[in-house]
């Protein structure tokens, strides 16, 4: 698969991150309709979809170097952003194996995995890593296996143990989250974790989702999309760092909204892990500035309608009451009222 990496851009400070024309076209736009409703929008995660973001099992794009650097910085400031409970050691190795195999298959020019029994050899050319290690022996890697591999992949990951008909978040690498915290959530059950979402409970959405996930099969991963809005392309909008990013929200004006405001989409994947029987939850974050998004006419029209007509409770949950009119006004200029085509891909 083609993968053209940009030199590292920043997702903090001066926010140099931009999407190229190709990156815009591959954005996983999340709205299948002009009206947004919360639902169990899970589907099998197979290679291929409305845009190229669905072509790999774990998608990498032009921002790879910048995102890996941002993660390294977050971990240097706060090592607790990566933690795994000791009883999930099998799940750590499951994750390492899954990610290495997927990357080496989808991006052979960048990654190579060679193995001879338990003697493994991993090459990551973009990050200039060349590592020989013994699968199953954590001492043979420079850091624990889950941390080792998730430092080399875009997107956050959590590990869920399954027991007593529930899932428990007991590990994760979480450095680019939309306002939730691993430290606070680790050890929580699926129900507790999803507690705060409005409306969803009324529809029994989470009971259904949980029942489905408990039966998630090996070799049959699933995916769903989630979305929110973020001011500036900032990956790390954690509760711990609220003082750093919270004030950004007051800086949105009609003049700068197109440049500053980003649609933040998470391509979430859920994969059953073989040895541990746990579930790996991947949360791959994509940020696109409104001024970039409106270059796809269909998306501009639809996003305008979705945000204009959003249910007030969901609008509050997505954290946008204050500047929503500014966004809707900005997008209105790109909506001529023409019907939008089915599906989420660009026309």
């Amino acid at each position: 698969m083609d993968l053209n990496l940009k030199p590292a851009e920043t997702f903090r400070g001066n926010f140099s991150a931009q999407n190229s024309e190709a990156a815009i076209r591959r954005f996983p736009f999340p709205f299948p309709d002009d009206l947004y409703m919360y639902s169990v929008n899970m589907e099998p995660h197979e290679r291929g979809g409305p845009t190229a973001a669905y072509d790999a099992i774990f998608d990498l794009d032009e921002h790879y170097l910048g995102e890996c650097a941002d993660r390294a910085q977050v971990l240097a400031d706060d090592p607790k952003r990566c933690q795994v409970m000791p009883h999930l050691i099998d799940a750590e190795w499951d994750t390492l194996e899954l990610l290495m195999e997927s990357l080496a298959t989808d991006y052979p020019a960048q990654f190579t995995l060679t193995r001879n029994g338990d003697a493994w050899h991993w090459i990551n050319r973009p990050l200039a890593l060349d590592q020989r290690f013994t699968f199953g022996d954590a001492a043979s890697l420079p850091c624990p296996p889950f941390e080792y591999i998730t430092r080399q992949v875009q997107g956050d990951f959590t590990l869920q143990d399954q027991r007593d008909n529930d899932l428990f978040i007991e590990g994760g690498m979480v450095t680019s989250q939309a306002d939730w915290s691993l430290n606070f959530d680790a050890g929580m059950s699926f129900r507790q974790w999803h507690g705060p979402v409005p409306l969803a409970h009324e529809a029994g959405v989470f009971d259904r989702a949980l029942a489905y996930l408990l039966r998630l099969q090996l070799g049959k991963p699933v995916r769903r999309l989630n979305w929110t809005l973020t001011v500036n392309p900032r990956l790390d909008t954690s509760p711990e760092n609220y003082p750093k990013w919270g004030p950004d929200r007051t800086t949105v004006t009609p003049e700068n909204v197109g440049h500053k405001l980003c649609l933040r989409v998470e391509l979430q994947t859920l994969t059953r892990l073989p040895r541990s029987n746990g579930i790996l939850f991947g949360i791959r974050c994509y940020l696109i500035r409104l001024e970039e998004l409106v270059r796809v006419e269909k998306w501009a029209r639809r996003l305008h309608r979705v945000l204009r007509d959003l249910h007030p409770d969901l609008a509050a949950y997505k954290g946008m009451p204050r500047y929503r009119p500014i966004i809707v006004d900005y997008l209105a200029a790109f909506d001529d009222g023409a019907p939008t085509s089915p599906g989420t891909g660009p026309d």
């Binding site: 169990v40 899970m42 029942a211």
Partner: peptide
């Protein structure tokens, strides 16, 4: 279909 597991409707 979406989920093929009786969850999505």
């Amino acid at each position: 279909y979406l989920c093929r597991g009786g969850a999505c409707g």
